[in-house]
Design a protein around this nucleic acid. Structure first.
Lengths: 191, 191
DNA sequence: ACCTGAACACCGTTCAAGT
DNA sequence: ACCTGAACACCGTTCAAGT
């Protein structure tokens, strides 16, 4: 028997579904986008979507994978820019998929595969942030906490619009505090 | 005609519905809790809930109002404690309703009244945080940005469990950076 | 292997009808 | 004014049946 006979087709169709879902999820949101609609845009019936994906959440995971890969490529391209500019670019970029990030948070409780994706996402983002902090001179003892703070601030900025000036102020203050932490050693009685 | 004839009853029943919804929303979450279930726990049919509330989101707003009032009372009681302890208490407290906060973010796009509630909530929380920052000596020019950072960090801690030690490290680092910002004036070329 | 028509289960919401 | 039984609309998901 022919092993892997036209595996291309399967990936193609799957890709079309993911492409349709990506556009719809980003533009209209996860909840308002029905599985039927995703199918229609990809030229199939809603049931067919279930031949390629276990459920709607699996479609979301595939969409997130695609979007995150794009994002990582953008990050790599800008690795030479100053930290503030890099962060502001990341915020602008992630804001386009802001609604989806919120959806992920809302659905991790209901979907195991989404939880797995979310955890992996954080590990990667934290790794990137940590290397930046190290470059800024933040000592190892403070890197964990500062990394989490960085992630939280970026996530917060996505959910809560602040205007270009406000965004820049937040990012600059953040980078400034990282430099401050780098300059002043932590003391156990600092509270 | 008797004005306000037994307005007590209406408030009582409404209160029972809110009480039932609060318990269910906090313990099981918003989505898994059906309107029928809320009604049953309050001793009425699902339709009756719609006599007291416009829709499920309005029930949520009432629940949030109740929970937030409790929270504010707790904040007031602890106003004398050191900032780190106050923040850690707030995080522990808010974590109990973590799921609901995520739900709010997920539903602001769909529900106007929820958006209004969310905005009001932020205004109040930011006011509290700003007064703390002022007490820590953060100059006015940096208060806006630091306040937003504070809110983002607290929100992030709710969504992403970090363990007691990790939580304390984050909060201490945050307060330390606020003190650092207070000590070092901002400079326009600090990026 | 891939796809569909039809149906199921579930849930928020509405409405006509009761007291 | 307050409450209910019954029904509607919608949507994720499944299944038996087709090629």
């Amino acid at each position: 028997m022919p092993r892997n006979r036209r595996p291309q087709d399967r990936e193609e169709k799957r890709g079309e579904i993911v492409a349709a879902a990506t556009r719809l999820f980003v533009e209209e949101g996860y909840d308002p986008t029905t599985v039927a609609r995703i199918g229609r845009e990809a030229g199939v019936t809603s049931n067919t979507v279930y031949w390629y994906f276990k459920d709607k959440d699996e479609v979301l995971v595939a969409v997130l994978d695609a979007l995150f890969a794009q994002f990582l490529a953008g990050v790599a391209e800008r690795s030479a820019e100053p930290p503030v500019e890099q962060l502001l670019w990341a915020v602008t970029e992630l804001r386009r998929v802001n609604r989806l990030i919120t959806t992920v948070h809302a659905r991790v409780a209901a979907s195991e595969s989404l939880r797995v994706w979310h955890d992996g996402f954080h590990v990667q983002v934290e790794e990137i942030l940590r290397s930046h902090l190290a470059a800024l001179g933040v000592p190892e003892t403070d890197q964990d906490a500062m990394t989490r703070i960085g992630v939280f601030v970026v996530e917060g900025m996505l959910t809560h619009a602040g205007g270009a000036a406000g965004d820049r102020a937040v990012v600059e203050t953040l980078v400034r505090s990282a430099r401050g932490i780098a300059a002043v050693p932590s003391s156990p009685d600092s509270r």
